[in-house]
Design a binder for these strands. Structure first.
Ligand SMILES: NC(=O)c1ccc[n+]([C@@H]2O[C@H](COP(=O)([O-])OP(=O)(O)OC[C@H]3O[C@@H](n4cnc5c(N)ncnc54)[C@H](O)[C@@H]3O)[C@@H](O)[C@H]2O)c1
Ligand SMILES: NC(=O)c1ccc[n+]([C@@H]2O[C@H](COP(=O)([O-])OP(=O)(O)OC[C@H]3O[C@@H](n4cnc5c(N)ncnc54)[C@H](O)[C@@H]3O)[C@@H](O)[C@H]2O)c1
Lengths: 203, 203
DNA sequence: CTTATATCGATATATAATTATCGTTTCTGA
DNA sequence: TCAGAAACGATAATTATATATCGATATAAG
């Protein structure tokens, strides 16, 4: 089995794929081009790409098709993963419309809320239906967008129903068993970066 | 002038402050405690804290009050920064309610949208009023939450009105002049991390 | 067909980040 | 009051990450 990808490399791979998608006309990309946009050396770009089995051609660069399929494969964007959305308020509804998620391989197949309804063609179900649906469709990922004071209790329900990964959009730190993974969508770090720039300008 | 803080250290400082805020009863924190939660060595924690002028006491650890004031100072959470919100749809309204921003030193003092209205006690103004308000209140930060296909045009208006930092919640990559800084709130990277964990579980 | 050049990959070097070691300080309890 | 332990800070060593160098290769132009 191949060794795990270092985090820094992983982050750059995400960035590289983004650059490629934003230049739909380019047929090939040299390590120098990509390096310039990312602010690192071309050598590093080649190392990153080589490490996931991609190679380029002298005088040409890396082929677009190779890059896209290689990167999407490694990043996991190719296969479609079913997920549920819990808490369909303002943020939740915004995410339901956010087409980027689909293109990254995440399909929201059901929504849950205290008050059931229908958004577009998607059923918003009451929470009582959650456990059975998770089991029936073998859902492993949940996006959590409930109010802060319901976050832990809802997470507990998700865990009890067998969810393995929680993408947590609330600011509440969740306590979950060892085998469950929480990815925290945290604006704190972003805010700190924003403030740095704000204050940098000041001088 | 003190040298700039390395990015990795900066990120850990944000995490450390979060840990402290989540343990409101603890009067002091040892580097070992913090290290355990962050998954790094205690030595590194001490280095990080020493680097911003904080020191601990043997047998006790770092004093809560020192930590909070030191960290908040460095991260810029102490002084209040006025900001505007452009695009008051689902995501935008959610952010207007998101009290975390206030506690990080970001006050949303006005909202703008195609359709003016009032949310709580906050006026949502038409875009025509934007330039004069930015100048009058000397606003330097804008949160951008408009639809993807208006993102670049709206950013152009913000730049023309003198905004210096744009916190971009749209997935669109913005092109702005050198002196303007864009902080991209990007779900791509998060999604990739989430998918890694989903697939890790699989084996 | 030959030459010039852009770009690659491999190996070596340099820099940055993290951890280990060790002696010191301050509190606790006998 | 003194021994022991918990935690600290400074310096040294290690590991990880990024860059530099250089020979090789494929393309394009003449
Ligand atoms: N990370 C971010 O980017 C970010 C940004 C803004 C808000 N937030 C957070 O996201 C969360 C949602 O924000 P919002 O503005 O959409 O709130 P909202 O009040 O608009 O929506 C919350 C929804 O959850 C539903 N709900 C309440 N309790 C529930 C439960 N136990 N189970 C299922 N559904 C339940 C409500 O009916 C409502 O529809 C909040 O915790 C907020 O603090 C995060
Ligand atoms: N980064 C994230 O976490 C994230 C999550 C979800 C959505 N998004 C993106 O955020 C943006 C907003 O999403 P949403 O769900 O709130 O959309 P929305 O349609 O609910 O709201 C958009 C708002 O912008 C207003 N608007 C349109 N054109 C405008 C203009 N030129 N100037 C000012 N206001 C204008 C509309 O009147 C509307 O109120 C979208 O681009 C979406 O793709 C980002």
């Amino acid at each position: 089995m191949r060794k795990p990808i270092p985090m820094r490399t992983f982050n750059r791979l995400v960035d590289i794929l983004k650059i490629i998608e934003q230049a739909p006309d380019k047929q090939s990309f040299s390590s120098g081009d990509l390096a310039l946009e990312l602010g690192v050396s071309d050598i590093l770009i080649r190392k990153d790409l080589n490490s996931i089995g991609l190679s380029g051609r002298p005088k040409i660069g890396f082929d677009r098709t190779d890059l896209v399929s290689g990167l999407e494969g490694v990043l996991g964007y190719t296969r479609q993963n079913d997920a549920i959305l819990v808490g369909c308020g303002r943020l939740g509804r915004s995410l339901l419309d956010f087409s980027l998620l689909d293109s990254l391989g995440i399909s929201l197949v059901a929504g849950f809320d205290l008050t059931p309804s229908k958004i577009g063609r998607l059923e918003i179900l009451p929470l009582t239906k959650m456990p059975s649906l998770i089991k029936r469709l073998r859902i492993r990922l949940a996006l959590l967008c409930v109010p802060e004071d319901s976050a832990q209790a809802t997470a507990d329900q998700l865990v009890a129903a067998g969810i393995q990964v929680i993408w947590n959009f609330t600011a509440t730190t969740l306590h979950v068993p060892e085998h469950v993974h929480v990815h925290q969508e945290d604006l704190r770090l972003s805010a700190a970066h924003v403030l740095q720039h704000l204050h940098r300008e000041e001088q």
